[in-house]
Computed example of a mutant assay.
Amino acid sequence: MKSYYSDDLVTLYHGDSREITDWLAADVLVTDPPYGIGWKRHGGGVNKNRGDRHEGIVSDNDTSARDAALTVWGDRPGLVFGSFFAPAPPHRHLLVYRKPPDSGVLGSTTGWRRDLEPVYLTGPWPKRAARWSSLLETATRASGSPSSPAGRYGHPHAKPVDVMEQLIDACPPGVVAEPFAGSGSTLVAARNLGRRAIGVELDERYCETIATRLSQGAFDFGAVA
């Protein structure tokens, strides 16, 4: 199948990862899939960076797209972002991503912000001495500003590149697969670390965003403002 974008390290396909199978040739899965939380209903679907409405995340009404990808991926190493408000996939360890300080206000009624996301380690992982914290943090200081990943790339779940680099740097060696590429942070992080990666994205507007980020010819470290 013809790729949407390709360079020496990264190949991106436009389409449904349940129909495009090239990503299955990779060695480790690093993905930020639809969580099953129906994002459009959370916060009214408003993009607070531009004041317009966002149509939501495709296939986010349940976890079926994520689960289908994990089924065909099989018993191989994976890192899978999720939500504490949606069913978890089978996993062997749990990491926690702490979002920027202004995150998690919408939908919170308890006084505590919803500013944490689980990251599930799936499949077999090599045995190693414990040397990393299971708490992941970013140098990005805001999620709602125009300079944030969401503000810059128009995707409400855009992850900071520094977080994705932490995860990929700890992965077993080999090609990285991202069947739900979104704004492209996983692919950019892999490229920054000199690793090959294969991505698939269903929404063509985000394919265009990813191609622009990757074709800049310079390291994209994401916003830290």
Rank of each mutant, 00 (worst) to 15 (best):
G45R: 04
F180A: 12
G182N: 05
L121C: 12
L167Y: 00
H93F: 12
V200W: 12
L95Q: 05
G104W: 02
N192Y: 11
T11F: 06
Y153E: 15
A223Q: 10
V176G: 03
A158Y: 01
T63Q: 12
S59R: 15
S147A: 14
T109R: 13
G104M: 03
D162Y: 02
A65K: 06
T21Q: 14
S103D: 08
T71M: 09
R50I: 11
E117L: 06
G51L: 02
G74Q: 07
W125C: 07
G222I: 02
I37C: 07
R128Y: 04
D52H: 00
A129G: 09
F219I: 07
D22F: 01
V46H: 03
K159W: 11
P118I: 04
L9C: 02
L116P: 01
E19D: 15
Y35N: 02
E165G: 09
Y35T: 00
W112H: 13
R205G: 02
G184W: 04
Q166C: 11
A69I: 15
E208S: 12
L202T: 01
R18D: 10
D169G: 15
A129L: 15
V224I: 14
H91W: 04
E208K: 10
V80Y: 11
A197V: 08
Y35Q: 05
S148C: 08
F221L: 13
A170I: 09
R205K: 14
I168K: 07
T71A: 15
N47A: 11
F85R: 12
A218Y: 13
S3P: 13
L167R: 00
D52W: 00
R114F: 14
K99I: 05
V163A: 04
S134D: 10
L29N: 03
Y5R: 01
F85Y: 10
A86E: 08
H91R: 01
G15S: 05
V163H: 04
H91T: 02
R53S: 09
V58Y: 12
G38V: 02
D27C: 08
D115N: 15
T212N: 11
A189W: 02
S17N: 13
R66P: 08
A190R: 03
A189R: 01
G217M: 01
R195S: 06
T21N: 15
A26Y: 07
R53Y: 11
R41N: 10
P101I: 00
L135T: 09
P100G: 00
E19F: 03
V28P: 11
S147L: 08
P173T: 05
S145L: 08
T63G: 11
D32S: 15
H42F: 09
S133A: 07
P179N: 04
A170T: 13
